[in-house]
Deep mutational scan, measured.
Amino acid sequence: MIINNLKLIREKKKISQSELAALLESSRQTINGIEKNKYNPSLQLALKIAYYLNTPLEDIFQWQ
């Protein structure tokens, strides 16, 4: 199971779900699903999230 700190990191950087979704060329619903652990992002999307949040991938997503 993958757990994530996306919501915590996103809020700390003062970025809304909609703003992050626009940067990622994704939907706000996708970001919401990832944050609620209802959806696991593809590797490509996970890497883009890490890039746009300027945060190491392993700080956002962790195996448990």
Rank of each mutant, 00 (worst) to 15 (best):
M1Y: 07
M1D: 03
M1L: 15
M1I: 10
M1R: 06
M1H: 05
I2D: 04
I2M: 10
I2S: 08
I2R: 09
I2W: 10
I2A: 09
I2P: 05
I3F: 09
I3R: 10
I3E: 07
I3W: 07
I3D: 04
I3G: 06
I3N: 07
I3P: 02
N4S: 02
N4Y: 09
N4Q: 03
N4G: 03
N4C: 12
N5H: 07
N5W: 07
N5E: 04
N5R: 08
N5L: 06
N5S: 05
N5M: 07
N5Y: 05
N5G: 02
N5Q: 05
N5T: 03
L6G: 03
L6N: 02
L6A: 01
K7W: 06
K7H: 07
K7T: 06
K7A: 11
K7M: 09
K7G: 06
L8S: 15
L8G: 09
L8M: 13
L8W: 09
L8H: 13
L8N: 13
L8V: 15
I9G: 01
I9A: 05
I9H: 06
I9F: 09
R10V: 04
R10Q: 01
R10N: 01
R10L: 07
R10H: 02
R10P: 02
E11R: 08
E11N: 08
E11F: 07
E11H: 08
K12A: 14
K12V: 08
K12R: 13
K13L: 13
K13D: 03
K13E: 06
K13R: 11
K13S: 09
K13W: 07
K14S: 09
K14H: 12
I15H: 04
I15C: 07
I15T: 02
I15V: 09
I15Q: 02
I15R: 03
S16H: 02
S16E: 04
S16T: 13
S16I: 05
S16V: 03
S16A: 06
Q17A: 07
Q17F: 03
Q17D: 03
Q17H: 03
Q17T: 07
S18D: 14
E19H: 11
E19Y: 10
E19L: 10
L20D: 00
L20Y: 02
A21R: 03
A21M: 03
A22T: 12
A22E: 12
A22F: 12
A22V: 12
A22G: 11
L23S: 10
L23N: 08
L24P: 01
L24H: 01
L24D: 00
L24K: 00
E25K: 15
E25R: 14
E25F: 09
E25P: 14
E25G: 15
E25C: 15
E25V: 09
S26V: 15
S26E: 15
S26A: 13
S26N: 07
S26T: 15
S27W: 04
S27L: 04
S27E: 08
R28P: 15
R28A: 14
Q29W: 11
Q29L: 10
Q29I: 09
Q29K: 13
Q29S: 13
T30E: 11
T30S: 06
T30Y: 15
I31V: 11
I31S: 00
I31R: 00
I31W: 02
I31K: 01
N32P: 01
N32S: 14
N32C: 12
N32H: 11
N32T: 08
G33V: 06
G33P: 01
G33K: 15
G33Q: 15
I34W: 03
I34G: 02
I34N: 02
I34A: 01
E35M: 04
E35A: 03
E35V: 03
E35G: 01
K36A: 13
K36R: 12
K36L: 14
K36H: 13
N37F: 07
N37M: 07
N37Q: 07
N37S: 10
N37Y: 06
N37T: 04
N37K: 07
N37H: 09
K38P: 02
K38D: 11
K38Y: 13
Y39M: 13
Y39W: 12
Y39F: 14
Y39N: 07
Y39V: 14
Y39R: 10
Y39E: 10
N40T: 15
N40R: 14
N40A: 15
N40L: 14
N40H: 12
P41G: 06
P41F: 04
P41E: 03
S42D: 09
S42I: 04
S42Q: 05
S42R: 05
S42T: 12
L43M: 14
L43H: 10
L43C: 15
Q44E: 14
Q44D: 12
Q44T: 13
Q44Y: 10
Q44G: 12
L45M: 13
L45F: 14
L45K: 00
L45H: 01
A46W: 03
A46L: 04
A46E: 08
A46N: 04
A46H: 03
A46R: 05
A46C: 11
L47R: 11
L47S: 09
L47A: 10
L47Q: 12
K48E: 07
K48T: 05
K48L: 08
K48S: 08
I49T: 00
I49S: 00
I49E: 00
I49F: 02
I49N: 00
I49L: 06
I49Y: 00
A50C: 07
A50N: 04
A50Q: 03
A50I: 04
A50H: 00
Y51G: 06
Y51C: 14
Y51Q: 09
Y51K: 10
Y51D: 07
Y52L: 12
Y52W: 10
Y52R: 04
Y52I: 15
Y52Q: 08
Y52F: 14
Y52E: 06
Y52D: 00
Y52T: 11
Y52S: 07
L53E: 00
L53S: 01
L53W: 01
N54R: 10
N54H: 11
N54T: 08
N54C: 12
N54Q: 14
N54V: 07
T55I: 05
T55M: 07
T55Y: 05
T55H: 07
P56G: 05
P56W: 06
P56M: 05
P56C: 08
L57C: 06
L57W: 04
E58T: 09
E58Y: 13
E58C: 11
E58D: 14
E58S: 13
E58Q: 11
D59K: 10
D59Q: 12
D59W: 07
D59H: 12
D59Y: 09
D59I: 06
D59E: 14
I60S: 01
I60W: 03
I60E: 01
I60R: 00
I60N: 02
I60L: 12
F61S: 00
F61K: 01
F61A: 01
F61W: 05
F61G: 00
F61I: 04
F61D: 01
Q62S: 08
Q62F: 06
Q62T: 09
W63S: 02
W63F: 08
W63N: 02
Q64E: 14
Q64M: 07
